[in-house]
């Protein structure tokens, strides 16, 4: 800290106050990330007899040529395409229901938000029982009841068509409350005079929703959609605990492939390349969101 000590009064204090956090961010986030980029261009594999060398973009070529990894990308994308709209619509619906004078409002908010405090590992375990195969499985029994016995009991988590939707369902259960609370705050930020003005202009409830509520929630919605999309690409815990990517890669994800390469197969360089691809996806989503927000600022 020689350079800092040489600086005058306030300067030194600023450095000292921000220093511990900055050192942590540098050492444990920035450096590992740069390491990932560097390692992804090598052939490093722990315990491999091959000499370490630069192999350029070979790892990237290899992962994109790997059907399991391509399936993982598709699964993450499908997960995002289903969960983001469904969960956002559900959360918005709940937020609208609760943004009214209503007896027991706080109770309902508590119920809907409660799953948010459940660790994902626990959610996965509880839902494994709910999704239990056979007619005694709660979800199977419920579907049987709803279809008057027409439902054929499924082994949800071992069924190639039902495994991913099952994981989507529990993810929505856990995440909707989080979004709902954010949207509720957004709703409360819309001045009631806007609604009154719209009502005077003769707008019905649906028109008010389209022309007052949705525009008023625009930024909040963009934020919520961004966060949920990124979460969709981070999907790991439920998959690791319930299906290990199976059956037949039906539920594998980018992170699951990365972790499997890294420490079940010791393929350091490959795992690093997967990490970088993951980051590029997240970066792209974030840039799209920034763009959308900027457009709005230009309009208003």
């Amino acid at each position: 800290m020689k350079a800092a000590a040489g600086l005058r009064g306030r300067n030194r204090h600023g450095w000292l106050m921000a220093g511990p956090a900055l050192a942590g961010l540098l050492l444990f986030i920035a450096v590992p990330f740069l390491m990932a980029v560097g390692l992804s261009l090598t052939n490093l594999r722990l315990g491999s007899p091959l000499p370490l060398e630069w192999v350029g973009f070979q790892q990237y070529e290899r992962i994109f040529g790997d059907p399991a990894f391509r399936r993982a990308l598709v699964n993450n994308a499908v997960f995002a395409l289903v969960v983001v709209p469904v969960q956002t619509a559900l959360a918005l619906g709940l937020a609208l229901l609760l943004n009214r004078p209503l007896a027991g409002r706080v109770w309902f908010r508590t119920f809907f938000f409660m799953p948010v405090v459940f660790p994902m590992a626990l959610v996965a375990v509880v839902w494994q029982l709910i999704l239990a195969p056979g007619a005694a499985g709660p979800l199977n029994a419920l579907l049987g009841l709803a279809t008057f016995g027409l439902w054929e009991p499924l082994d949800f988590l071992n069924h190639s068509g039902a495994a991913l939707p099952s994981i989507m369902l529990m993810s929505i259960w856990q995440g909707a409350g989080f979004q709902m609370v954010i949207l509720l705050a957004g709703l409360q930020g819309i001045p009631s005079t806007y609604y009154e003005a719209a009502a005077i202009d003769g707008a019905g409830r649906w028109q008010q929703f389209l022309h007052v509520t949705l525009p008023g929630l625009r930024n909040t919605l963009i934020f919520v959609v961004l966060v949920t999309t990124i979460l969709a690409f981070r999907l790991f815990d439920q998959v690791d605990i319930l299906t290990r990517g199976g059956p037949n890669n039906a539920t594998t994800t980018v992170m699951f492939e990365g972790v499997t390469s890294a420490f079940r197969r010791q393929q350091v360089a490959r795992a690093a390349a997967i990490t970088v691809v993951f980051f590029v996806i997240v970066l792209a989503i974030t840039l799209v969101q920034r763009r959308l927000l900027r457009e709005e600022r230009e309009i208003s």
Partner: peptide, 24 residues
């Protein structure tokens, strides 16, 4: 400059560094 650095790290989810951090 350092604040820009912090803002840049905001978009980096933990998963993006888990593997290299593990080796570190």
């Amino acid at each position: 400059a350092l604040f820009a650095f912090v803002l840049a790290l905001l978009i980096l989810p933990f998963e993006a560094i888990a593997v290299p951090l593990f080796y570190m």
